[in-house]
Structure formats: structure tokens, C-alpha cells
């Protein structure tokens, strides 16, 4: 019991702190790639503390409800992950959170927010099938959806499921809001929708969304690290390598539109995943 509580605490506290740290590192690496120095590594924490202390402007009561739900779902998904629960349950929980965020954006009347929410829903539509195929692939390999079983697995999954891991790369780019798929909202505001889904959230609500995003970041990097779950070091190394690659892609690509995203990610991602699964099944 005590053990479970400690893990719960780690998931709740260390999760977002790690996510914030990843965000800070991301901003420094991005700045260096752009010939700049960049902010200090703890910049995301300052941002969130400041946002939490700002005046609360709520356009619509539903917004607050949706943000609380999003944050709660993201937290729950990470806790379930840390407690080595069922992978399917985790995927459904995080999808629920993502939908709540889009619902919150739809609750306001701003056209930017509305269009951003539609794009967010399209993004969910794009990455969810791939994410579930990743779950199915892990199941076919290990015989269980339980993360505890995956963690016991001796061989790195990435050697057996390399194409599926590539498909997970698409999911990570979309989920972490990186170019070329930062359609609904990007970290910097220079896009046609200003801040997309985030447009009408302000102050503490935006801070909570940011914390939720930290939980999401850690969760998606955690799922990525399952592909080399032979020990903590390879897990961290794989997650870090994947994160670095995504930052690199972010800085070397323009933003594409959602039609192309849907077509390309489904065609390429599903093909990669299915080819991998069929090959494994045949063998």
C-alpha cells in the first residue's frame, strides 16, 4: 500500500516537473537551432506560476469545467501509466482529456477558438488510430495490454516493431504540437489562428492547460520509452532521442495543412504500422 502511494506521489508531482523540464530544454534547444541563446531552463515554471497568479477571465462557465476535466484526465492517464496499469485504459483516458480541451475551446464564440477546436478534433482523429495500433502491436508482441508485463519483457520491442515505432513518431509530433503538424495551436503565436484552441483561455486556466500539457508530454514520452523497456537507462535514452529528433523536425519544417496531415499520416502511419504487424504475425 505504502509503495503504491509513493508511486502515486511520483506520478502526480514528478510527472509535471519532468514535463516542465522537458519544455524548458525544448525551448533552449530550439533557440540554439535558431542561432539564439534562449530562456533559462526553468522558464516554463515561471510561465505557469505567473499565469496562475493572473486575473481570471472566463468567457463561458463551460470553459473552466472543460479545463478542470482536461487536467484531471491527463493526470489520471499519467498516474495509470506510472502504476503500470492497462495500456488501453491509459489511451482512452488521455483521449478523453484531449476531447475536453477541444470542447472547452468550442464553448467560446471566438472564430479562432472555434476553428482551432475543429482542427484539434481532426488531430485527435488523425493520431488516435495510430496510438491504438501501437497498443495492439505491443499486445501482439507481449501477449498483454498491461504495462507491468511490458516492463518485464526481456527484449527491446523496438527491434521487433521498428515501423510501429516510426508510426508513433507521427503521434508524438502531433501530440507535442510540433511542426509540421502544429495546426490547432503552436507554442509561438505566428500562425493564422493566433493561438488556436488556447485563444480564449487565459490566466489560471491557461496555466492549468500548460500543466496538463506537461502531463501529456511525460505520458507520450513514457509510451515511447516502452519500446526499450529493459531498464531505466535505455528507456530514458530512447525517450530523449525521440524528443530530440522531434525538436529537430520542428525546426526544419513548415506547418502543413490538416488535409495533408490527415491523408499523409493515415496513409503512411497506418501502412507502416500494419506492415509491421503483418510481418510479425506471419513470422
Amino acid at each position: 500500500m505504502n509503495h503504491a502511494l509513493i508511486i502515486l506521489g511520483i506520478g502526480l508531482v514528478a510527472g509535471p516537473l519532468l514535463g516542465g523540464l522537458a519544455g524548458g530544454l525544448d525551448r533552449i534547444v530550439t533557440a540554439r537551432l535558431q542561432a539564439r541563446t534562449g530562456p533559462p531552463v526553468w522558464q516554463p515554471y515561471y510561465d505557469v506560476i505567473k499565469l496562475m497568479a493572473k486575473e481570471l477571465v472566463v468567457v463561458n462557465g463551460w470553459q473552466a469545467f472543460c479545463v478542470y476535466s482536461y487536467l484531471f484526465a491527463s493526470m489520471l492517464a499519467l498516474i495509470l501509466f506510472v502504476m503500470q496499469s492497462d495500456l488501453l485504459l491509459i489511451l482512452f483516458t488521455q483521449a478523453l482529456g484531449a476531447v475536453f480541451l477541444a470542447m472547452g475551446a468550442l464553448a467560446s464564440t471566438s472564430p479562432y477558438s472555434q476553428v482551432g477546436a475543429h482542427r484539434e478534433l481532426l488531430q485527435i482523429l488523425t493520431y488516435e488510430p495510430l496510438l491504438f495500433l501501437v497498443g495492439v502491436g505491443i499486445f501482439l508482441e507481449t501477449g498483454s495490454f498491461k504495462i507491468s508485463v511490458v516492463m518485464q519483457w526481456k527484449d527491446p520491442l523496438i527491434l521487433k516493431l521498428p515501423l510501429l515505432f516510426a508510426a508513433l513518431g507521427y503521434v508524438m509530433i502531433i501530440k507535442l504540437r510540433k511542426s509540421p503538424f502544429d495546426l490547432a495551436a503552436s507554442h509561438h503565436a505566428h500562425q493564422e489562428l493566433v493561438r488556436g484552441v488556447f485563444t480564449d483561455f487565459s490566466g489560471p486556466l491557461l496555466g492549468m492547460i500548460e500543466i496538463g500539457h506537461w502531463y501529456d508530454t511525460v505520458l507520450i514520452l513514457g509510451i515511447c520509452s516502452l519500446f526499450w523497456a529493459t531498464g531505466p537507462v535505455p528507456m530514458a535514452a530512447l525517450a530523449a532521442a525521440a524528443y530530440a529528433t522531434i525538436i529537430l523536425i520542428d525546426n526544419a519544417a513548415a506547418r502543413l495543412n490538416w488535409r495533408w496531415m490527415l491523408g499523409h499520416v493515415w496513409a503512411m502511419g497506418l501502412a507502416l504500422a500494419l506492415v509491421n504487424l503483418i510481418c510479425r504475425h506471419q513470422g
Binding site: L33, Q34, A35, S179, H190, Q191, A252, R255
Partner: peptide
Amino acid sequence: FADSFGFESLFMQLWK
């Protein structure tokens, strides 16, 4: 122009 299609690093390099 680079910024308008979301290519932020190109924007930074050109302004440099």
C-alpha cells in the same frame, strides 16, 4: 513569409 507558414527557424536565420 517563412513565419507565415510556420518555419520559425528560417525566420530567425534570415533576420540574423
